[in-house]
């Protein structure tokens, strides 16, 4: 039978772990809500921008828009969005597993990587993949500037002709319990053919120039969306993981308390027996 003091110490340490996991759960919940709010806020801008492009595209010669033109795909760039920190269940492992499988299928040497978040960067650096850009330690102060920065890097890599397609692997935030792993093609962009809009408007500068400047901005907002989705998913995954950890700690504490009480009872019983035995020895 374990001794009483040991069990008491274990209970104490499990309790303090439970406190930490519980706190982490609350923090993750708050961050997740914040990220969801930002997703909501980005929607009007994204929608208006998309409408504008679709309004203008039918009037513009597509061949002049390099970001829209599909080329024969010889090299691909993958943008892999993971978190910087762990303790979020299988959030990062899943994404890295899928990314690795996809990349190896296409051929490691024909793939360039943009690793967003520490986890993906570490994993692929260790395995000597071709990393073009790695971004770490920004999630806490995530702002739209980051989306612009990452977006510009991706666009210039694509426009320089080093890759013929850009794909993004990230966690899509469906709801708190479900995050779906998603692989999307980012470049070249595809837009549905639209009917000519018949709004009579003054355009300044020309429609071509407008579309040319609209498309990179559209990409930036896409990148922003990926970042937010991933961040919300990360926090949701962490929340669930920490919720489970807290629950498990609770169970552990219950078991330990039971064991503790048993040990206490046992020691009382032995003491009683000793006293009774001693008293009997005196009377006889």
């Amino acid at each position: 039978m374990a001794n009483l003091k040991d069990i008491r110490n274990r209970i104490k340490s499990v309790q303090s772990i439970q406190q930490v996991t519980n706190a982490m759960k609350m923090v993750a919940a708050a961050k997740m809500r914040r990220s969801q709010e930002r997703m909501e806020n980005a929607r009007p801008y994204a929608n208006r921008l998309q409408n504008l492009i679709q309004d203008l595209l039918p009037d513009v010669d597509r061949s002049s828009l390099d970001l829209l033109n599909a080329r024969e795909v010889k090299r691909i760039a993958y943008v892999i969005v993971t978190s910087d920190k762990g303790l979020a269940g299988s959030f990062n492992t899943n994404i890295i597993k899928i990314a690795q499988a996809d990349i190896d299928e296409f051929g490691k040497d024909n793939v360039d990587l943009f690793c967003i978040g520490k986890k993906a960067g570490d994993h692929f650096k260790r395995r000597h993949y071709n990393i073009i850009e790695g971004h770490v330690n920004f999630w806490n102060e995530l702002s739209y500037d980051h989306a612009i920065k990452f977006g510009n890097g991706i666009i210039s890599h694509f426009l320089s002709g080093k890759v013929d397609e850009v794909r993004v692997i990230y966690n899509y935030f469906k709801n708190v319990a479900v995050q779906e792993l998603s692989v999307e093609k980012l470049l070249p962009l595809t837009f549905d053919k639209q009917q000519k809009s018949n709004i009579d408007r003054i355009y300044e500068p020309s429609k071509e120039e407008l579309v040319k400047s609209l498309i990179p901005r559209h990409l930036n907002i896409q990148v922003w969306k990926y970042l937010l989705e991933s961040y919300a998913s990360e926090q949701a995954a962490r929340m669930v993981a920490m919720e489970n950890a807290t629950k498990n700690a609770g169970e552990m504490i219950r078991d330990l308390k039971l064991e503790f009480n048993k040990a206490r009872q046992a020691s009382i019983t032995t003491e009683m027996l000793e006293i009774v035995g001693g008293a009997e020895a005196l009377t006889s």
């Binding site: 504008l52 709004i199 009579d200 408007r201 003054i202 355009y203 300044e204 500068p205 120039e209 407008l210 400047s213």
Partner: peptide
């Protein structure tokens, strides 16, 4: 600020789209 200079808008401006 448009790309090539400042411009002002009052109510009743023509429908337009300016970078």
């Amino acid at each position: 600020p448009s790309i090539d200079g400042l411009f002002g808008i009052l109510a009743g401006h023509a429908i337009s789209m300016i970078a």
